[in-house]
Design a protein around this nucleic acid. Structure first.
Lengths: 188, 188
DNA sequence: CAAAGCATGTAAGCAGTTACATGATTGT
DNA sequence: ACAATCATGTAACTGCTTACATGCTTTG
């Protein structure tokens, strides 16, 4: 996947400027792209060169001119082709798990502290996501199906966070258990 | 995070050659790096230039010479500093969710089909992971704590897959429900 | 005999981030 | 007064992947 298809997808919803697309990608929870304009602008230029989108410069009274991009039939074709292509497995990259993996250098307290900080980080993110979900969010709703799918996509992210939070708590509890048995047990 | 710390982590376990580290990263489930040697070899050279590791070329009878890398005290320092640094939230990038998000172009059958293929992909991956977990895997076990944590890290990945699988099934069921109500219900 | 494993390395490129540059307008 | 929003763009960089090159040994 690349940002190309995310942008084509957006334009299949409605014409937009680079600025608008950038903002949307930046604070859409399912988009892992940072609020980084460069890639958006350069990709739009590229899509235009390939004839998948059209551009029109629109003058405004009080603000700078905007370049409105609209998707072309060939853009729809390209998008449709990608949409039905083989779904990829989600890619989960967790720096924290790598930290834990090589945590043998650390004392028990450090590890427990790390797990605690991770837990609070997850809780914070979950709260934020729930708040964003509570006030109905940006995004198209052209059909009941689309509204349903957008809600579900949001829920997937939250479910993943909940699972990881549960995991973190159980892991910390397991560590306490391990320590108790090692310290007090005495034998074997 | 970068591969630097993963490599330093490995070397904090035992001295190794680039080849060995590459293989480990390639088929370790918690490492998102591809089985791609370039980065490993160049990073090792870099770590050596910075004095965090030592190199020693070891001749072998039947195989090419290997360059054995070992971690230095300064490497341990750098690693320890990273280990206690703020845990980052896991990064979940799902191309499939983007596909669903812009799936309004597709018919119901296409979407259901896509969800089905995604489900089978997840099931396959889960089966593979369970199999790998069943036969005790590679990795250090220098203390009960380390063994416990490595097991837990593996379980986190599987839990994430299970959550996503559950989500996929519920989403497909939800779609059927939606269709039933729209098609047969007639009114409102 | 071919494929896979052992072992190191280089070249070229894609994807994505940070930081910089410009300049008017609106909100605190 | 300062920051944020609107709006586009460039330069430089990191992180990571694909593909290529070499050559011997073991396994199927």
């Amino acid at each position: 996947m690349s940002i190309r298809h995310a942008i084509l997808g957006f334009l299949s919803w409605k014409p937009a400027s680079g600025y608008e697309i950038k903002k949307f990608l930046a604070d859409s929870t399912w988009s892992h792209w940072s609020g980084n304009n460069n890639q958006v602008y350069t990709t739009l230029v590229q899509l235009h060169r390939e004839g998948l989108v059209t551009v029109e410069t629109v003058q405004q009274e009080k603000y700078p001119a905007r370049k409105m991009y609209a998707i072309e039939p060939s853009g729809f074709d390209e998008l449709r082709r990608w949409l039905v292509s083989m779904p990829e497995l989600p890619e989960l990259r967790s720096a924290f798990h790598v930290q834990l993996a090589w945590g043998e250098l650390l004392g028990d307290d450090d590890i427990v502290d790390l797990l605690g900080r991770y837990e609070r980080e997850l809780e914070g993110q979950l709260l934020l996501r729930r708040e964003l979900a509570r006030r109905g969010r940006e995004g198209p709703s052209r059909s009941p199906r689309e509204a349903f799918l957008w809600k579900r996509i949001d829920e997937s992210g939250m479910a993943a966070l909940e699972t990881e939070l549960e995991w973190t708590r159980a892991t910390r509890a397991g560590l306490f258990d391990l320590r108790r048995r090692t310290v007090s047990g005495g034998g074997k």
